[in-house]
């Protein structure tokens, strides 16, 4: 399957490079916006926007980290699937421990965001070491 890119590939590379933790910060800001939206009940438009950013960056991190051999679309969608699995499992554990109110959902999102960023960094570093 040929990978045509449409410019998404370079965007994905940029996200995965995560220079100076810029896209990790985007993830954290998305979590903050989701939290504020939950507490202040602003609008579902705000929530959808922040969530789309969260999924996009998180899926790019995980897709690059774990499915680097695949083509862009599959890599991205599989990153999304893994993000969903992690989010579900962390959410499930948090719910069992202390319910899932706005604070606990924020905690789950934050934990998964840190996991995405760390996975991306650790795997990238390992690949760089193997290449060297």
């Amino acid at each position: 399957m040929r990978d045509q890119g449409f410019g998404f590939e370079s965007l994905e590379k940029l996200i995965a490079r995560d220079s100076k933790f810029s896209f990790t910060m985007v993830l954290f800001v998305a979590v903050l916006v989701i939290f504020l939206n939950g507490v202040l009940s602003l609008s579902f438009v705000v929530g959808v926007f922040a969530s789309v950013f969260y999924f996009f960056v998180g899926a790019a991190f995980l897709g690059r980290a774990f499915f680097g051999d695949e083509v862009l679309l599959v890599r991205f969608l599989f990153g999304g699937l893994v993000l969903l699995v992690f989010l579900g499992l962390v959410g499930w554990v948090v719910m069992i421990v202390n319910g899932l109110d706005v604070w606990m959902v924020t905690l789950a999102l934050f934990v998964v965001a840190v996991g995405c960023s760390l996975s991306n960094r650790v795997v990238r570093r390992r690949v760089r070491r193997e290449v060297a």
Binding site: G38, F44, A50, Y54, G88, L100
Partner: peptide, 22 residues
């Protein structure tokens, strides 16, 4: 109960509902 009841799916739904504000 944690494993057999629909807790995992409920956690999914609740996380998404809080995320999207829907």
């Amino acid at each position: 109960n944690w494993l057999s009841k629909p807790n995992f799916q409920s956690a999914f739904t609740m996380v998404f509902a809080r995320m999207f504000g829907v």
